[in-house]
Design a protein around this nucleic acid. Structure first.
Lengths: 216, 216
DNA sequence: TTATTTTTTTAGATTAGTCTAAATTATTTA
DNA sequence: TAAATAATTTAGACTAATCTAAAAAAATAA
């Protein structure tokens, strides 16, 4: 098996390379709160194990076997998050750090049984898709609220920022996963957005709108 | 917090010192599958942290703060074992190694909620007592079947050997936790024991009788 | 009580993962 | 395109946890 550090690198590279196609040394360093020189060392090790494609100065991406490991860690992370919220009554803003630790429990059989126990959930508490035991998962595109035009409506289905403070803010405004909303106005001056929820009207900043994802 | 290695040492010392009052360097080494010299190094570190009482060549025992950590790890281990058997349908012979990994998940809040979720179980699947959130647990003495006289009966309530092969053997003979049994004969020649269970009579070796615990 | 054996500790090395500081390569800007 | 800046890698060192081999202490046997 792989070490904890290796698993964290693979996961970080996966998330970075999903967007860019490639992850740079500095991006990896900042996402893991470590130094570029440490990253370089680890990249060599992962390349030796054929888990990443690495040419010096060019950034990296995952090989199929590296991706398989990354997805299995993400599967574990999201299933544990679901467990913590649905079975142990944690709030969605409390589970990320716990799941960071639990995702490294190695047994595949354990995680498959946990999946079964919970009824094969498709999404975690933040709306992110949960890969199945073969690594396949939903991938339909969500749009940030900031990219939607006035009078369109949709269902809140994900977030881009997983920080507690953002999630707590959304809770307070009752902007949670599954809520139906309609964009009623976009303020030209600061790109803030006025949103109609079930009960009331909420005014959110451009930044919030950017980090809140809806399915149309 | 403490490292994984430190936690494993504290747990090993706890289990060894429960019997002897003191754990020797070699005992610790063999219970952790490591070398005596490695143990000596770690003992110094744990003594520096005031988690054990250590005088060279004299063996060690836990300080109150070391014991508190050890018991919290044992609590986690046993609660996770209970979870794996009761919620995820693992067999009692499959859960030890999984729980060895899960016991190091650090959050106390998580484990307290897991405890609540399962209804505050008092014993794990092998009959061992589960410490509560204050570290208190049942401590009434169990007797090995080998120490019981003919015609006495009791409830199977624990095992001394937690190996898969022993537990699978007990399964096959239907000698599982909670079963009422009566000792009907003790063979003088080899100290093997004849036991009456609900349905049938089972003949077990001295070694098995020694590792099977009952409450009278 | 001296010699032998066993147990424990010390000394010195190794590996994984990290760091700082310096050197190198790439990119940007003028 | 040359100079300046930014990104990346190399060099050398550190810590935690381990190891082997040798030395020292304790226990056992003669």
């Amino acid at each position: 098996m792989n070490t904890l550090a290796e698993e964290n690198y693979l996961k970080a590279i996966y998330h970075l390379a999903v967007n860019d196609g490639n992850a740079s040394t500095n991006q990896i360093a900042s996402s893991l709160n470590t130094k570029a020189s440490s990253v370089t060392d680890m990249l060599k090790k992962l390349a030796d194990k054929a888990l990443i494609n690495y040419t010096p100065y060019q950034g990296v991406n995952l090989t199929p076997s590296g991706e398989k490991i990354a997805i299995s860690i993400i599967r574990k992370h999201r299933l544990w998050e679901y467990f913590l919220v649905e079975k142990l009554n944690f709030k969605w803003d409390q589970v990320h750090d716990l799941a960071e630790e639990m995702e490294h429990i190695s047994s595949e059989e354990l995680i498959d049984r946990l999946d079964e126990f919970m009824g094969y959930p498709k999404h975690d508490p933040h709306g992110d898709p949960i890969p199945d035991c073969n690594g396949r998962f939903d991938t339909h595109e969500l749009k940030p609220v900031s990219a939607v035009t006035v009078n369109q409506s949709g269902i809140i289905s994900g977030v881009r920022d997983h920080s507690s403070s953002f999630l707590q803010y959304l809770d307070k405004k009752q902007l949670t996963i599954g809520c139906k909303i309609m964009i009623t106005d976009i303020i030209e001056y600061d790109h803030s957005v006025v949103v109609q929820t079930g009960n009331n009207e909420v005014h959110i900043s451009r930044e919030v709108a950017n980090n809140l994802l809806i399915a149309l």
